[in-house]
Design a binder for these strands. Sequence first.
RNA 1: GGCCCAAUGGAGAAGCGGUUUAACUCAUUGCCCUCUCAAGGCAACAUUCACGGGUUCGAAUCCCGUUUGGGUCACCA
Length: 555
Amino acid sequence: MVTDKEIAELIFPEVKESIEDLEKRFPLRNLPNGAEVTRFAPSPTGFLHTGSLFTSMICHKVAKDSGGIFYVRLEDTDTKREIQGSGETLLKQLHLFGIDPSEGYLGDKQIGEYGPYIQSERADIYKVVIKYLLENGKAYPCFCSQAELDDIRAKQEKAKIIPGYYGPFAKYRYLTNDERKERILKGDPYVIRFKSSGNHIHKIKVTDLVHGNFEIAENDMDIVIYKSDGLPTYHFAHVVDDHFMRTTTVIRGEEWIASLPIHLELFKTLNWEAPKYAHLPVIMKIGENGNKRKLSKRLDNEAAVSYFLQDGYPTEALVMYLMTIANSNFEEWIFEHHFEHMEEFKFSFDKMSLEGALFDMGKVNFFSKEILSKKTKYEIRDMALAFSKEYDEKLYNLIKRDEDYFMEIMNIEREKENPRKDYEKFGNLYEAISFFYKDLYEQSVKENPLVFNEKFDKETIKEVLSNIRDNLKLDQDEQSWFNNMKEIGSSLGFAADRKAFKANPEAFKGSVSDVAEMVRIALTTKRNSPNLYYVMQTLKKEECDRRFNSVISNL
RNA sequence: GGCCCAAUGGAGAAGCGGUUUAACUCAUUGCCCUCUCAAGGCAACAUUCACGGGUUCGAAUCCCGUUUGGGUCACCA
């Protein structure tokens, strides 16, 4: 009679190592008490998802706050869905958001004593553990074909019983070792399944850092742990990797709660202590049918982190927003700290909401404006350059014409108590500031003739603009300059302040606001612009005169 | 459908049996300030915490049921 050991030897003759050897190869980490080892384990199947950024941010934070270790492990066992190069991209994007692992897969290299950190390179490790399970009758080769599987499922669905490969339905679990040997030697394709000893009637108590304690049915599925392509499945790889990489807290999305019993049974069978678990709520969005659904990369721009990068959002803004979802007390904290040093905030799992939040772009915009308004002109220049170099050639060339001039523009009402907050991203900056540039102003006027208030005829506009031009003094302070404009307005029949005009509209042509609007349109082509005084200071007298003249002669 | 999780305004939420006529933030609306806008200031916006029942002198808070929403049931992670 063929023994379990012989089957194990038949399948993995090349495996000589034992679990004890692995335990020695990956010794317990020497870390201070309370230090957490966390990991972010993405699959290289595309660009970074906003939900993944959320998860990795929390993993990073938990490790950092506790003086522990945050590492990245590449879960590339699904070779069909793998996208070449996406692992590197993922790491680059994490870096842009301030998430830098100190260990593991770093994109271009791997660092650390617990590797390899790429699952496809860990085959020898998985095999040792699977061989052990095989030897001890805790796993078996399964020769079930897809057609057989479909058949089992169909029967189960018809009979309205729990679908899956378990108990009496796990037909290949009852094969004798002699039969197994025969089929293996014959070359029949097979996978290796875990032999569950659980029963779903039994409940197990689980503890989750976010959800607290709850009960869940024991696992009784004979899940696949080793695929026919020679790679492990997620469930098995998670247990093996997090054990040997000595992870203390597994932080992952809520969708994993349902498979927790599988993982726990695996840990128990292997006599390993399970890590702590934190299952994070998923970020949602209202779908077309009016119901909540998971943010989808296919349907929602904001699901891909690259969207925020391409649009020129400061990465801090997204991280700050994500922190408000992560911890309900963060918002109050960051207001108290004037939107600065968010890394000093102490994260805690019990301040996390259990329900998936709806992604709120408006709030991202809010944080973005706050953050940008607090930057110095130098920081703004550097950020704008970094963004435009990659995503906005027109803007990049514009800034590069004269960086000092660009900073002067961006510095209008910036470094003061209540700075202007009109920029939320760099993606539309070109449009917003182009009028400051002579040639772009001219081009704009040529393509879109200036639109003045219809209330005033051309002669009035000409009169106002020429008077302003003739009396334009930019060497005086703001108040004097404004008073000067009021006086000119008054002399031409415009009320010096809005109240006087409102009280007696018949007595005036308009108010000083109308005068300012004519000037603003003439100089900036827009109805709205930053403070006119500073705009004129930036443009300089000569250019203002030139624009006034050109507008007057073209009216 | 089974199992698990959840349920406070348009959104994020505080709240942990009685100082709750429900904090705070975003959004929205109005007013003020103002050369426009962005800001800033001041207001308004849940008579009530999905619904029903119970426990209690007292419930958003505890219990039960219902409903609704989400997750999950692969040789994907």
